[in-house]
Amino acid sequence: MGASYHQFCPVAKAMELLDERWTLLVVRELVSGSERFNELRRGLPRMSPTLLSRRLHQLVRAGVVERHVDGADVRYVPTQAGRELRPVLEALGAWGVRWIGELGDADLDPKLLLWDMHRHVNHNAVPAGRTVVQFRFRDVPADLRDWWLVIHTGEADVCDVDPGHGVSVTVHADLRALVSVWLGDLSWPNALRGGAVEVAGPEALRRALPRWFTLSEFAAVPRPTAPA
């Protein structure tokens, strides 16, 4: 736990645990369903493994997370205290959507975008069998340009190397544009109409693709009304 504020205020006491760097983002991943260390790392790609281990240990010690060990399988599961942080995170995210300014280029991460998208696949809308969506970001370095989302039997996985399956549709996009779609700042039709996002593949699949995803939970947050 971080240094004490020496205040009896419950906000101060909560922040002694939660305001250390990365802690709330670790909780974000845990309440979003990531349980294993490698899953957490994929949702926190710029966090060092050593620091992630330290933060998990602190959360376990504070009673926010339980560590479940079954042989070599180790899972981190939020306790009731951890689960009760979900609305706190939702409120913070909604506030950030409404009041934090435009994202900088360094904030745009294709790895994090695809990891978030794979958790929001609408499996009822995706065709039966295996569906592979290739994403090609034309405005990022070559080693981050190509990604594959493999959807099959109610599951989805993100690959940064060709998984070797036939591609159903290919999405060519500016990274900023697809992040804007994901966060609800740009609609699929407008992104496609303006050419910032292009979809290649059979016509029926191209038309259906936007329905394969439920957007980020923050996409529906009302934006502040501009002053008259």
Score class of each variant (00 low, 15 high):
1 M>K: 11
4 S>W: 03
6 H>G: 00
6 H>R: 13
6 H>P: 00
7 Q>G: 05
10 P>G: 11
10 P>D: 09
11 V>T: 09
12 A>T: 10
18 L>F: 07
19 D>T: 04
25 L>G: 08
25 L>I: 04
27 V>M: 10
28 R>W: 01
32 S>P: 03
34 S>G: 00
34 S>Y: 04
35 E>P: 00
37 F>Q: 02
41 R>M: 13
47 M>S: 09
47 M>C: 11
48 S>M: 03
51 L>E: 12
54 R>K: 13
56 L>H: 05
57 H>P: 00
59 L>C: 05
62 A>I: 01
62 A>E: 00
69 V>R: 01
75 R>F: 01
81 A>P: 04
83 R>G: 03
83 R>M: 07
83 R>H: 06
84 E>N: 11
85 L>E: 01
86 R>H: 03
88 V>Y: 03
92 L>H: 04
93 G>L: 06
93 G>Y: 07
94 A>S: 15
104 G>T: 08
105 D>A: 14
105 D>K: 04
105 D>Y: 00
105 D>P: 07
107 D>A: 15
108 L>W: 01
112 L>F: 06
112 L>K: 14
114 L>K: 02
115 W>R: 10
116 D>S: 10
119 R>Q: 12
119 R>E: 04
120 H>G: 07
123 H>P: 04
123 H>L: 12
123 H>S: 07
123 H>Y: 10
124 N>E: 07
125 A>L: 09
125 A>R: 13
125 A>V: 09
125 A>F: 05
126 V>I: 11
128 A>Y: 02
130 R>N: 02
131 T>I: 01
131 T>M: 01
132 V>M: 02
133 V>I: 08
133 V>K: 01
138 R>L: 12
138 R>G: 01
139 D>P: 03
146 D>G: 00
148 W>T: 13
149 L>Y: 13
149 L>W: 08
153 T>S: 15
158 V>H: 05
161 V>F: 12
162 D>G: 02
164 G>Y: 12
170 T>E: 15
172 H>D: 15
173 A>T: 11
174 D>Y: 11
174 D>M: 15
175 L>I: 08
177 A>E: 06
184 G>S: 02
186 L>H: 06
192 L>C: 07
192 L>E: 13
193 R>I: 11
195 G>M: 13
198 E>H: 10
200 A>L: 15
201 G>V: 02
202 P>Q: 14
207 R>T: 11
212 W>M: 09
212 W>I: 13
213 F>K: 07
215 L>Y: 05
216 S>D: 02
219 A>C: 02
222 P>H: 02
226 A>P: 04
227 P>C: 04
228 A>E: 10
228 A>R: 05
